[in-house]
Amino acid sequence: MIEVRNVSKSYRRDSLRVPVLNNITISVPDGEFLALMGPSGSGKTTLLNLIAGIDRPDDGSIEVNGTNVAALSESALAQWRANNVGFIFQFYNLLPVLTAFENVELPLLLTNLPKKKRREHVEAALTLVGLADRMGHYPKQLSGGQEQRVAIARALVTDPTVLVADEPTGDLDRVSAGEVMTLLDRLNKEFKKTIVMVTHDPRAAEKAHKVMHLDKGELT
């Protein structure tokens, strides 16, 4: 369960404070697939970052599965992210010098899993996204859709409860975008992952159970 209560956030631009989120309150039940939509600069990604624990609110609280994320120290927050959240980015953000296998293995390197177990987990994740035959490929040897599926495998390899996706289809053609959304839909329905997704794409949003619109830092 994700509970966002009265959250406000602003950024400093030189000497000016620019408000980004204003007193946002939302609740995302376990197993929910939530899509956040809105124009550029509306605060969607900022809200996503706050939920994922990669940014901190100025006011308000964010609880994810009972943990007050905003109250955690930096190192505790990093640990919490590693255990609880999987990240999917618009531009995949794979490390170009690592193979698909090595990229997916990254989050597991922070665990105490032995090498053999890590291999099993990685192979399972890559099989799930349909890329078992691409393990030794480098990102530049993959298509955009395949890269995003590797990124999804990396996001779910630690079996997090929450997946956050920032414009996961934003850089993909329609076919690839469709494949990625089908995969996310499957992760939500089959594996009961709570997904919070930012998107501009109405077709992507159609897969979500719930769509929230943000404009100028407020829910509309």
């Binding site: 990669i54 990093a78 980015f89 922070l110």
Partner: peptide
Amino acid sequence: TTEYAVLKTIGFS
């Protein structure tokens, strides 16, 4: 820069 951010996001110290 982005790669370091990704590593930090994943939980690297």
